[in-house]
Simulated scan of single mutants.
Amino acid sequence: MAPVNVASRDYRERPSRLAGAVVWTRVASGGAGDARPVLPDGCMDLLWTEGRLFVAGPDTRAYVPQVLEAGRRFVGIRFRPGTAPAFFGVPAHELRDQREELAGLWGAGAARRLTERVDDAADPTAALEAVAMERAARAEPPDPLLAHIVASLDAGHSVARTAADAGVNARQLHRRSLPAFGYGPKTLARVLRLQRALALARDGMAYADTAAVAGFADQAHLARDVRELTGKPLGTLLRGGP
């Protein structure tokens, strides 16, 4: 769940002590910059802001946060695709395109205690990371097949090849993908391809070359997919404009 401009002054991220996860922090500016879109990336997040713990499900479209009062702090733990449902105890498709209060998943009492724990901590970032690590230690480990699915699709392999390499048919792959990723493997492949393209374009690669390297048929295909998934042209996204 990364904003378009991950190098902005108000947003920072680092690898988490929780394997495969990322810790990020953000401070609201109170201006239009707060409304930078959060783009689909296949991930799910556990988020804290003062007095609140909630979950961001896997997005199929850009999420535009509201402008908040300046100085409001956010901390998040971003889970790589397929790993969060075991942690949260909820199938990913039930949280697709949703922001859900943690109380709805873990109960009001548990959510209140955890929220107070992070609220009262001298370092909310460390406190939220500790909460995540404790919960992960009690959760069932993710299905190893899920990491294969993500790696294969992120490498640009087709859904058919991904299924064959995993030893399942296309229907079985779709059925296992819904609770793990929140959507089927075709949508996951589109989301991962979008992220590959954005990374290449941010590094200065020409759009036509970006399309070819990221796995699009051509530049027009890249432009169409970016607009459908984010609601904006690629150039506007890279500039961080409205």
Rank of each mutant, 00 (worst) to 15 (best):
A223S: 15
D165E: 14
G182N: 09
P144Q: 09
F181H: 08
T162G: 04
D203Y: 02
L173Q: 07
W106N: 05
R138Y: 05
A111K: 12
A189P: 05
A127H: 09
A223T: 15
G104K: 14
A214L: 03
D120G: 12
L194Q: 09
A208R: 14
A223F: 07
P142K: 05
L200R: 08
A199Y: 07
A197P: 06
L188K: 03
R112H: 02
A220C: 00
D97M: 11
F216S: 04
A199N: 06
Y183T: 08
A155M: 12
A163H: 01
A122K: 05
V131C: 12
Q98V: 03
A122Y: 00
T187Y: 02
V131H: 04
L198Y: 05
A155V: 03
D119Q: 11
Q172M: 05
V191A: 04
V168R: 00
R161C: 06
V150M: 03
A126P: 01
L145G: 12
D203S: 14
A212E: 14
R196N: 10
H157D: 02
E134G: 15
R224F: 07
E129I: 10
A110T: 15
V150I: 11
V191L: 07
A122M: 01
A121H: 08
V213A: 11
D119P: 08
R224W: 06
A139E: 00
L178E: 15
F216A: 00
A197I: 11
L192M: 04
R117Q: 13
L192D: 04
L105N: 10
D203R: 14
Q195A: 05
R161P: 00
R171Q: 14
A147V: 03
R161F: 06
A139Q: 09
A212L: 12
L114S: 12
P144E: 05
G184H: 06
G182C: 04
W106Q: 07
D120P: 03
F181C: 01
L192C: 03
D165K: 00
V159R: 01
L178H: 08
H221R: 10
R202G: 07
R112S: 07
Y183P: 01
A201W: 10
R176H: 01
R113Y: 10
R202I: 00
H157K: 06
G204A: 10
D209Q: 14
M205K: 11
D154P: 01
F181V: 01
